[in-house]
């Protein structure tokens, strides 16, 4: 099923981006890393990053330098944890989210 997936809900895309950031640990992740990990176009990446920052799920940790770095907030961490649970339950019933 995973190989056949053609459509990702917006919530899944946001979660994939946050997972990419979480995967980089305390250092956070840059836009390029998030873009590749979440498999997004540049325009969508910018749009969704802004949305995640507005919702206080991620934070721009290093805005001074040329390379921007994003980290997960506490709210983002608990959101991701909840999403993973929802994802597992949905998957268990054969429902894609």
């Amino acid at each position: 099923m995973k190989g056949k997936r053609t459509y990702r809900s917006k919530m899944r895309i946001l979660a994939d981006m946050m997972r990419a950031i979480q995967g980089e640990g305390e250092n956070g992740a840059g836009p390029t890393k998030i873009l590749y990990s979440a498999n997004l176009s540049h325009d969508r990446l910018t749009q969704y990053l802004d949305e995640l920052v507005k919702k206080e799920l991620i934070i721009l940790t290093d805005s001074e330098s040329n390379s921007r770095v994003y980290g997960l907030t506490e709210k983002g961490r608990s959101f991701l944890k909840e999403f993973v649970r929802v994802e597992r339950i949905s998957e268990a019933f054969g429902i894609e989210v």
Binding site: M11, E82, V86, I89, S90, I95, V97
Partner: peptide, 13 residues
């Protein structure tokens, strides 16, 4: 939990 998942994802199923 299914309702919670629905509210989060909007997945009708």
């Amino acid at each position: 939990y299914a309702t919670k998942a629905f509210n989060l994802t909007g997945q009708k199923r």
